[in-house]
Design a protein around this nucleic acid. Structure first.
Lengths: 333, 333
DNA sequence: GGGCTGTATGTAATCCTTTACATCCCTCAT
DNA sequence: ATGAGGGATGTAAAGGATTACATACAGCCC
């Protein structure tokens, strides 16, 4: 078998307690002894059994993360942010990202329970009550992009509403009065909030208020492309479009091109997210930047904090309009 | 504290052994007793302590995954594939994806050792000897996109060389004789192999063999964009370009547009990877499809198998040319 | 009835650490 | 000289599960 602390103790001719003390650097141990222990550990290729350690200390230093199938860039950035922050505190990240339905999510969560010290969940159609029943009250949980305040869980989201508002407002500044929206999947919280921001702006700014201007999409590029047809069939045609994310905006770009028209001349366009490709599209995409990496970091932050102060906080992260070409501006950058 | 198996045993008025037997469904236990135990467990909200279980059974059912900073879509797909496959076997995935240098990677691996039963590593500039020293021989490891055969580790890669060959060949079929390549980061194994495939095709097909046609990129969109300038300064100008990945190809698309030229008329273009955006670019991108999700699945497959038969296998996954518009074809799809 | 078999259950060892408490010994103040 | 105090180390008890082995009991056969 693999070598244990007992073997090291024997080799160094001390007790296991001393070995443990050396390895954890906590208690006082004579310099000479310490060295002997370290040498023994080295010689035997000793590797502490993390499981035993976890059991004894009642800590796993591991958090679970549930992410759904989502846009790759978004997914990657969040994961990266989570991981960065976790690493700073010496925590590990146990991921699960391929669950599709509620049953599966339940079994995933169950299998995570008892091996994680906290959970970060991004799950659009999450039923809060269901989750409350499933997990012990004592387990810190951070919910991402979910309707805030609905629970005693911590939540963290983008400032979607203000971002969408800014996007529409900017299109209005370009003189557009008939601005359509391509929505995301209606069950998605981000999508809902972006739609809300759009509506608010349309009202406030006195733009054409026509429910046929709200076209339903699902955040995929294909839904962006196919939306163009619907868009062009409207009378009068909208002169501008707010796409609820960049993937769809890229699809729209493609669709408009296929229809033989031009962005921004025939249709001004603003997206949301500022994925890397947005800058390199032709025309480059005006969009609302979401701090994705930051979302990950802050989520982990909140979770690790939660252990200490268990105040359920609900935070949002500011977004920022990035002016490029697709709205009719000449690019900022 | 949380409830233990002892509490359940007490509640159900049986021994802990019986509770364990019921929960693991292995041994024979009377139906009536079984029910009583289950009821007790339910009533007490009992959750087996996974750590204790892991310690006793000497199994963690957890594998570690190291991925570098990489293109989002690629990253997401691999992770998904890994997770899917792991879940099928009831395994958990511990990820780490934000390490930058060797020291950090070392500490990450160290911290994983002792809590995982295997490791999947994608790490471009990995030093095999370093890894061999670091991990115990008994730990199964699968290396992704790395020079094969160099070790007793299992490896898995894309069939990059053949893919690149096919891309260049296709451009030659369109009549191009002066085909440039935009390479990826030279330390990257995929990049090396794609370059090798390009060179092989140039030789075989008798295309212009001019080392100035090899432009160094780094897989980023920006490097694609800025390569256009260099490309146009060559005399005579190449009429076609093979970009070693789609991100760079998208950057090239942008750069060509900025230069007031057209793809494919002024420059035919083929990418590599077939990221989702490739289909929606304008013009849509001809590219070589890599089965990314499959790479993840197969990697996990190999790892979980490895426990049984520890034959170091070296496999490659076939790639496939997808004809769209940027090469001069009318789109397949 | 006695011994044998097999099923259902209990007892206790075990996995490998950490750590509270005990011990030992040395130094120093009284 | 003696006791207190403190530094270095050892002993053994957790921590919560699994499981080998022991036990109890019922049924059966002769």
């Amino acid at each position: 078998m693999s070598t244990t602390i007992r073997d090291v103790a024997e080799e160094a001719d001390v007790s296991v307690a001393t070995v443990s003390r050396v390895l954890n650097g906590s208690d006082s141990v004579r310099a000479e002894t310490k060295e002997r222990v370290l040498k023994a550990a080295q010689a035997l290729d000793y590797l502490p059994n993390e499981t035993a350690r976890n059991l004894r200390t009642q800590k796993t230093r591991t958090v679970g993360v549930l992410l759904p199938n989502m846009h790759g860039e978004f997914f990657a950035q969040i994961t990266r942010g989570l991981d960065q922050r976790a690493k700073e505190d010496g925590h590990h990240v146990l991921v699960s990202n391929s669950h599709t339905d509620e049953t599966e999510a339940e079994s995933v969560i169950r299998s995570l329970l008892g091996r994680v010290e906290g959970l970060i969940i991004l799950w659009p159609r999450l039923d809060i009550g269901f989750l409350e029943d499933l997990v012990p009250d004592s387990l810190p949980i951070v919910l991402l992009s979910t309707s805030a305040g609905a629970s005693h869980f911590q939540t963290l989201s983008f400032e979607n509403r203000a971002g969408a508002y800014a996007a529409v407002e900017h299109l209005a500044e370009h003189g557009h009065e008939r601005v359509a929206i391509l929505t995301g999947d209606p069950v998605n919280y981000d999508a809902q909030m972006r739609l809300a921001g759009y509506r608010e702006a349309v009202q406030d700014l006195g733009l054409d208020d026509d429910s046929s201007l709200e076209i339903e999409g699902d955040f995929t590029q294909e839904s962006g492309r196919s939306a163009v047809e619907k868009l062009l069939s409207l009378t009068p045609s909208p002169t501008a479009l707010f796409a609820s994310n960049d993937s769809m905006a890229l699809g729209v770009l493609r669709g408009v091109h296929e229809a033989g028209l031009q962005v921004p001349e025939d249709l001004a366009l603003v997206g949301f997210d500022d994925i890397p490709t947005a800058r390199f599209a032709t025309p480059s995409l005006t969009t609302v930047r979401t701090p994705t990496l930051e979302l990950g970091r802050r989520a982990m932050d909140a979770l690790l904090d939660a252990s200490a102060s268990n105040q359920p906080t609900h935070r949002t992260l500011d977004t920022q309009l990035v002016r490029r070409e697709s709205c009719g501006c000449s690019s900022d950058e």
